[in-house]
Design a protein around this nucleic acid. Structure first.
Length: 566
RNA sequence: CGGGGUAUAGCACAGCUUGGUAGUGCGUCUGCUUUGGGAGCAGAAGGUCGCAGGUUCGAAUCCUGCUACCCCGACCA
């Protein structure tokens, strides 16, 4: 490819609204341009990277026995109503009507559509298992799109769905996909970690995420410092540990006028947050209210709360009015003593003794509070987010927290969608049964951003060879003035191309500094500089993008190929 | 959805407080010189100042409404 004919626009300056490195570099390198909030055009240089990522995914999915299909992005609402997600899925689901006033959604994921496909075409157990995948544009009306392509509203996803006769076969395919994803991300050349996950909006039982470790990541991960345990904070269990010390202090009212927040009360009473108990009030599963007791320094884990049988799902926090009706005071002064609604205590909160909590009366707290003595023994549950230093749930080591970018997730859905859509297949025994299913996603556009987050320096991107827009760039110096340089550069370009190497020739006639700056910014892994200086000694200059210094090599295509192979 | 902010040339910004006919840098174009890490000089093009109203002799500037975009938060006990 000759850069003079390639639509490439790089910039020295970064547009004001880019915050994270990958977003800045993608804009500066001319990979993407923004159209609207969370909506991006992919320009030639960016598209090349995207296609390479897609190609690796296709190869590995096909190798794993999956079949590529393509479903529509626009889906009739009926299917979503049938699965129940028309109601369950929140405002992230973009809904609209056609000219006949019929409801449609812009697909954020395609369980319903594939399941419908299966329902129509799969008649016999002999047609199973089957794994269908597509690489397609999805739309999710994110609350807050940000970080460029990392959290866009429109994005490209590889989504795969498998259907099985038995749970064992689903387990087999789940592991098959786990291996496939491992191969995909390894080939792409990014460092990742497989992490236990919550099943979220998709639903189902077993699930793991593929996380690219990066400081800019939006997900918090809890990782054991000794074992291989790793989980998304949403799914990291906090097991009960420690026992409650005996009560020593007497229950005592303390005046805390206007001190509503935990931090405020702790400072005012000169107490550590760990000795303070907070009460959050949420809607209960039975339609009433339920109070959740947590240590003041801990955070409620909404995912865990939602799953608790006594708590309403989705989680709804009580309003100030509801709290006043139930407690007779404002939030900020709530406590378990004399509490008229059921109390569910987090394991860590339940082992507190002599703690301070709200007095259920405005401007007052209670010190020296003890479970069992001043209140009933609370029912306990795991309700909080793990924090650094917690024991690892597998009993080995301590948890540390790090950030990650979720680039893939695999699920065992089980029969939820097949049952909801009434998929019936004839079994070996002549009886109808409902197949069980799994689904497996990769955020293709996000992978591109995640790789950049992990691989960049102050000059630009450092692409791994596998997904670089070009593997090698030729920078001829003074090409327009020097016929030898021009001839050598063009010959090398043509010969590399014939050898199947994806090569760019910078024939734009720029000054050397500008050429080098662009090559570094765009992140091309290998660079050949051809100048009359080197040519006199029959030499090219070769530099790896990540090497400190260039080296001189013989001015032959073979010598260049040798370097590319290394 | 709540809070905050921004909107002026392709990009980044100044000008607005105190109303008077729109500017800087980068980029782009032309010419000459230059050519191993984003060149120098000279010249040039490019703006309905987000949109709609209002105030005023006069509005980028003041007022009202709208729209778009960005940031923070959505755990608060």
């Amino acid at each position: 490819m000759r850069l003079s004919r390639f639509a490439l626009v790089t910039t020295k300056e970064t547009p004001a609204d880019a915050e994270v490195v990958s977003h800045k570099l993608m804009l500066r390198a001319g990979m993407i341009r923004k159209l609207g909030a969370g909506l991006y055009s992919w320009l030639p240089i960016g598209l090349r990277v995207l296609y390479r990522v897609e190609a690796i995914i296709r190869e590995e999915m096909d190798r794993a026995g999956a079949n590529e299909i393509r479903m529509p992005g626009v889906i009739p609402a009926e299917l979503w109503q049938e699965s129940g997600r028309w109601q369950k899925y929140g405002p992230e689901l973009l809904r609209f009507k056609d000219r006949h006033d019929r409801d449609f959604v812009l697909g954020p994921t395609h369980e319903e559509v594939v399941t419908d496909l299966i329902r129509r075409d799969i008649r016999s157990y002999k047609q199973l298992p089957v794994n269908l995948y597509q690489i397609q544009t999805k739309f999710r009306d994110e609350i807050r799109p940000r970080f460029g392509v990392m959290r866009g509203r429109e994005f490209i996803m590889k989504d795969a769905y498998s259907f099985h006769v038995t749970q064992e076969d689903l387990d087999r395919e789940y592991l098959n996909m786990r291996d496939t994803y491992t191969r995909i991300f390894t080939r792409i050349g990014v460092e990742f970690r497989i992490v236990r996950a919550d099943t979220g909006a998709i639903g189902g039982k077993r699930s793991e995420e593929f996380q690219v470790l990066a400081a800019a990541g939006e997900d918090l991960l809890a990782v054991s410092d000794t074992s291989d345990y790793a989980a998304n904070i949403e799914a990291a269990a906090c097991l009960p540990h420690g026992t409650r010390p005996a009560a020593t202090a007497a229950l005592q009212a303390v005046s805390t006028p206007g001190h509503k927040t935990c931090a405020d009360v702790a400072t005012f009473l000169k107490l550590p947050m760990q000795k303070l108990l907070k009460l959050l009030v949420v809607h209960a599963a039975d339609g009433g209210l339920i109070a959740l007791a947590l240590r003041a320094d801990h955070e409620l884990n909404e995912v865990k709360a939602e799953k608790h049988p006594r708590i309403a799902s989705p989680l709804v926090m009580a309003t100030d009015a509801e709290i006043r009706a139930a407690f007779g005071c404002q939030p900020g002064f709530l406590g378990p003593v004399g509490c008229k609604i059921p109390v569910l205590a987090d394991h860590a909160a339940a082992v507190l003794a002599d703690f301070t909590c709200g007095a259920n009366q405005d401007d007052a707290h209670l010190s020296g509070t003890n479970w069992g003595r001043d209140t009933a023994e609370p029912e306990t549950a795991d309700l909080r987010n793990a924090v650094a230093g917690d024991p690892s749930p597998d009993g080995q080591g301590m948890l540390t927290l790090t950030r990650g970018i979720e680039v893939g997730q695999i699920f065992e859905n089980g029969p939820i969608y097949t049952a909801a859509l009434g998929v019936k297949v004839l079994g070996e025994d002549g009886q109808e049964f409902t197949p069980t299913a799994g689904c497996y996603g990769i955020g293709v556009t996000r992978v591109v951003a995640a790789v950049i987050e992990q691989r960049n320096d102050d000059r630009g991107i450092l692409w791994p060879d596998a997904i670089a827009p070009f593997r090698v760039i030729i920078c001829p110096i003074g090409m327009d003035k020097n016929a030898d340089v021009k001839a050598a550069a063009e010959a090398l370009h043509d010969e590399l191309q014939q050898a199947g190497v994806d090569v760019a020739l910078d024939d734009r006639g720029l000054r050397p500094g500008a050429m080098f700056a662009d090559a570094d910014l765009i992140g091309i892994p290998h660079r050949i500089v051809i100048g009359d200086r080197g040519l006199k000694n029959a030499q090219f200059e070769y530099k790896r993008r990540d090497a400190a210094e260039p080296e001189m090599i013989a001015a032959t295509t073979a010598a260049v190929l040798e370097k590319l192979r290394a």
